[in-house]
Write a protein that binds this DNA or RNA. Structure first.
Length: 611
DNA sequence: GCTGCGTACGCA
DNA sequence: CCAATGCGTACGCAGC
């Protein structure tokens, strides 16, 4: 045994590095001490659990004052034995370690998940804000320095320095290269479960005292289910993705070469693009937040005589540089962020396993990363076509119909809006009819729709004008008409604003989630509570679908929809059942409904990919 | 080589 | 005051 001591929150703590089988007796004695909850953590070669070459290197257990650090390759049996004891563990960001342990030790997510506490979940319930948003932050280091010990070391940062200096490695590669018994590596590995356990001891009572135990249990259960989705992943059409990647790279290069003829060496440099356009005589008037000339897609496409669907408008002579830059950037983005990312992140079976952040945004909205499957281009099927169902299966999906509008109507108890929804009206058309009369036009509906979204997002007349291109006069008329038609919405926003102004700077959702508000953006309260409530509906649906025994069909949440797959013969029935499970027929008087659809053999088949 | 910031772009 | 919300990723650029 190699034992080191150090101080943590004024106490002496001991970190034991197990060197031989003889040392395991001491580990067993430690396990027999009767801790109801042990801190648990792993050190791995990287973050992509399912990529070739990934391995768990260390597994660490700790209570408040003693940690044991075990090599994964030498002490697998002892680790598995410890994990299978009837005991709870506390981890920070448990889904990662649960999958590592499932992947490398065969102690499954199903087995360990129900016995895992996650301090990240607890912290999110107490304050969902990142550090830069004024919150506690959600990283172990950030939370530990607030709740455990302000001098707790930044283990990641210090290890990165060692990777550089001693191993000529980067922050990415160092985790696999550092000597497994490197004293700093071992000490920091051991420190994390101690911090996790001490953090748990602080946060758990706070969660309980705020009456958040029920919500906490729900989020823990959901997190385990989402870890199952990540473990399952989604299959790629590899030959298709390889060709797509090559095609997009070639397309980007071709347009980059066109841009270079106008002196733009780098299409991703806004400064270069702006100065070249100005030199060609184009007038750039819009500015970025930082005061630079704006050359975003919204600026470039009109200069290239293209509308936002990239169709020729015949409104002017197209600027060839604007055209080249816009095309080059789109091909570059699609190629690098999506197609190439699919290839880089795939496992040996050509599946991708996106990280699903089940409790991510301030509003608890979920995120999906590596790769970002919630953000694949939707106006074109080419990227989504890369993701396919397993042989014999079809991709199926169900999405909520205008869920945020419906949630808003319910929460605000807006009688006219509720009535319109219950009558099956298209809400934007209904608004247009109320504002402009029965002879409203398509343009009127577009404005009404923008106003509806503006209300959900807390936007104002300027934004709606920019979005619709309508004259300010008409926008103001539509806003006034909306308020007259749906007075409950304004009243609700006012109520939330008043409570925040004179009470706590937060909104509380039906699920009991506290959402802090920024003092200079109190108006965001309506959006927060609507967005968060819509998220909770989707989260509950995922739980319900698992409870109904259909969880193994699920693949991915996308804010207001669920992507799944099922054997071709059952696909229609399966997605109807999933859609039914998503629905809440009477959500405070408002029907929350889902629309099921069988896409086909690929995700792209729901977006127009040829059969 | 890394970090932070700004800009841009993809989605709901 | 009358305000668009929430994310993840890539890249350029400046500074360390």
């Amino acid at each position: 045994m190699r034992t080191t001591t150090r101080r943590l929150a004024g106490d002496e703590v001991t970190i034991n590095y197990v060197e031989s089988a003889r040392d395991l007796h001491a580990f067993d004695d430690f396990l027999a001490r009767g801790d109801k909850v042990l801190g648990l953590d792993t050190e791995t070669t990287g973050l992509n659990i399912y990529s070739r070459g990934f391995a768990c290197r260390l597994v660490q257990f700790g209570n408040r004052d003693t940690a044991y650090v075990l090599r994964a390759d030498m002490f697998e049996k002892a680790i598995v034995r410890a994990l299978r004891q009837p005991r709870h563990f506390t981890l920070h960001n448990a889904p990662f370690d649960l999958q590592v342990i499932d992947h490398d030790f065969g102690v499954t997510i199903e087995e360990l998940g129900p016995r895992a506490f996650d301090t990240r979940i607890m912290a999110h319930l107490l304050d969902p804000r990142q550090r830069h948003e004024g919150g506690t932050g959600l990283r172990l280091k950030e939370l530990a320095e607030i709740y455990v010990d302000p001098t707790v070391p930044d283990t990641e940062k210090e290890l990165h320095a060692i990777f550089r200096k001693e191993y000529k490695a980067t922050r990415e590669t160092g985790w696999a290269l550092i000597d497994i018994d490197h004293p700093v590596y071992v000490e920091y590995a051991g420190l994390d479960p101690l911090a996790a356990r001490r953090l748990f001891d602080e946060l758990a009572p706070m969660v309980r005292d705020l009456g958040l135990n029920h919500l906490s249990q729900f989020e823990h259960h959901l997190a385990t289910l989402l870890a199952l989705l990540q473990r399952k992943g989604m299959l790629l059409d590899l030959p298709y993705v390889e060709k797509l990647t090559g095609d997009l790279a070639a397309e980007a290069a071709e347009h980059e070469a066109r841009a270079a003829r106008y002196g733009v060496a780098n299409v991703n440099s806004p400064v270069q693009v702006a100065s070249a356009l100005v030199a060609m005589g184009e007038e750039l008037t819009e500015e970025t937040d930082g005061g630079a000339l704006k050359v975003s897609k919204e600026i470039l496409l009109p200069l290239a005589d293209l509308d936002l669907q990239w169709e020729r408008m015949e409104s002017r002579e197209p600027n060839p540089l604007a055209d080249a830059v816009a095309h080059a950037k789109r091909a570059g983005k699609w190629g690098k962020s999506y197609a190439q990312a699919f290839l880089d992140l795939r496992d040996p079976d050509d599946r991708i396993h996106p990280v699903i952040g089940g409790l991510q945004a301030r509003t608890a909205r979920m995120s999906v990363s590596t790769p970002p499957l919630q953000q694949l281009p939707s106006g074109d099927w080419k990227i989504r076509r890369s993701v396919i169902a397993e042989p014999g299966n079809l991709i199926i999906a169900a999405d909520y119909a205008a869920v945020e509008m419906r949630v808003l109507a319910a929460l605000a108890e807006e009688p006219t809006m509720i009535e319109a929804i219950r009558a099956g009206e298209d809400l934007h058309s209904f608004t247009a009819k109320m504002v402009y009369g029965p002879d409203f036009t398509k343009r009127h509906r577009k404005i009404a729709k923008a106003v509806g979204f503006g209300k959900v997002y807390g936007g104002g007349a300027t934004t709606i004008q920019r979005q619709t291109g309508a004259p300010m006069e008409q926008v103001r008329e539509a806003l006034a008409g909306y308020d007259a038609t749906f007075p409950g919405i304004k009243r609700y926003a006012k109520k939330l604003g008043n409570r925040a102004e004179y009470g706590k700077k937060e909104v509380v959702t039906l699920s009991g989630r506290h959402l802090p508000l920024d003092r200079d953006r109190i108006y965001a309260a309506t959006n927060y509570v609507v967005q968060s409530t819509a998220r909770d509906l989707l989260a509950q649906a995922i739980v319900d679908i698992f409870d109904a025994g259909m969880g193994d069909l699920l693949r991915l949440p996308v804010h207001d929809e669920l992507i799944a797959e099922a054997p071709a013969a059952d696909a229609e029935e399966a997605i109807h059942e999933i859609g039914r499970l998503m629905e809440t027929p009477d959500f405070y008087g408002v029907p929350i409904v889902a629309e099921p659809e069988v896409y086909g053999p690929s995700w792209g088949h729901g977006y127009g990919a040829p059969a």
